[in-house]
């Protein structure tokens, strides 16, 4: 590995695989599709393709969504949580949206690898 590659890796570590979910089957898939209607107002893209949705599960008709904001502590986190809850409920699934920050969001989490 050249010295330049080492410096580049220190400044910006190579991205790992995405930790987000982009496709699911059954009821979880319906919830995920509904979450695609929630658009981050600042970035102009939906939370699923941004790679903010880490997990979706549905048990007894109730959805649990793990949402990782692109920036931990982002002031819009509460708004996004409410929007995701509303979108899932519109799809027929009362939902609990949990905010997760570890591991932190990275551009490589985006659909298509950012």
């Amino acid at each position: 590995m050249s010295i330049f590659s080492r410096i580049r890796d220190v400044l910006s570590p190579p991205p790992g695989p995405s930790r987000a979910v982009f496709q699911l089957d059954g009821d979880a898939g319906k919830v995920l599709d509904a979450l695609r209607s929630v658009v981050d107002p600042e970035l102009g893209r939906d939370v699923v393709s941004l790679g903010m949705v880490r997990a979706v599960s549905v048990e007894a008709g109730r959805a649990v969504v793990d949402l990782c904001p692109t920036t931990a502590g982002c002031p819009l986190t509460g708004w996004l949580t409410t929007a995701c809850t509303g979108a899932a409920e519109e799809a027929g699934f009362p939902a609990e949206v949990r905010v997760v920050t570890e591991p932190p969001w990275s551009p490589s989490d985006m659909e298509g690898g950012g």
Partner: peptide, 16 residues
């Protein structure tokens, strides 16, 4: 653009 449901009241989050 589609986001929060109609008339929803978003929690304040970390806004001061």
């Amino acid at each position: 653009m589609s986001d929060a449901p109609e008339g929803s009241a978003a929690p304040p989050g970390a806004l001061v």
